[in-house]
Amino acid sequence: TSQSKEFDPLGPLPPGWEKRTDSNGRVYFVNHNTRITQWEDPRSQGQLNE
Rank of each mutant, 00 (worst) to 15 (best):
T21A: 06
K19M: 09
E50S: 00
N33P: 12
G11A: 09
T37E: 04
S4I: 03
E6P: 07
K5M: 02
T21D: 15
S2I: 13
T1I: 15
R35D: 06
R20L: 09
R43W: 01
L48K: 15
T1K: 03
T34G: 11
D8L: 08
E40A: 08
E40V: 10
L13H: 00
E18N: 03
E50D: 02
N33S: 13
T34W: 15
N33K: 06
G11Y: 02
G11C: 09
L48C: 09
P14C: 04
V30Q: 07
Q38H: 00
N33M: 15
K5A: 01
W17A: 03
P15L: 13
E18W: 04
T37G: 03
K19V: 00
D41E: 01
I36R: 06
E50L: 15
N49T: 15
G16E: 09
P15Y: 02
P42T: 01
W17M: 02
R20G: 13
T34C: 13
P42H: 00
Q45M: 11
Q38S: 09
G11I: 03
S2R: 03
Q47T: 14
V27R: 09
D22M: 07
V27N: 08
T1E: 14
K5R: 02
W39V: 06
G25V: 00
P14E: 06
N49K: 15
P14L: 01
D41F: 06
P42G: 00
G11E: 05
D22F: 03
K5T: 02
N24E: 15
N24H: 11
L13Q: 02
P12F: 04
E40G: 10
Q3K: 12
S2H: 09
H32M: 12
Q3G: 09
E18S: 10
I36E: 05
S44Q: 11
F29M: 04
P12G: 09
W17G: 02
P42D: 00
H32E: 12
T1G: 03
K19F: 04
E18M: 03
D41H: 07
R43K: 01
F7P: 02
D41T: 03
P9S: 08
P15M: 11
S4Q: 05
W39C: 07
R20S: 12
S44E: 13
T21L: 10
R35W: 01
G25K: 12
N24T: 05
T37L: 04
T1R: 04
E18A: 08
N31C: 07
P42N: 00
V27E: 11
N24V: 12
W17T: 01
E40C: 13
S4R: 07
G11S: 04
E6F: 05
G16V: 06
W39P: 08
Q3H: 03
K19R: 13
Q3I: 15
N33E: 06
P15F: 08
N33Q: 05
Y28E: 08
F29V: 01
G16A: 12
W17F: 10
L13D: 00
S4V: 07
K5Y: 06
K19G: 04
P14V: 02
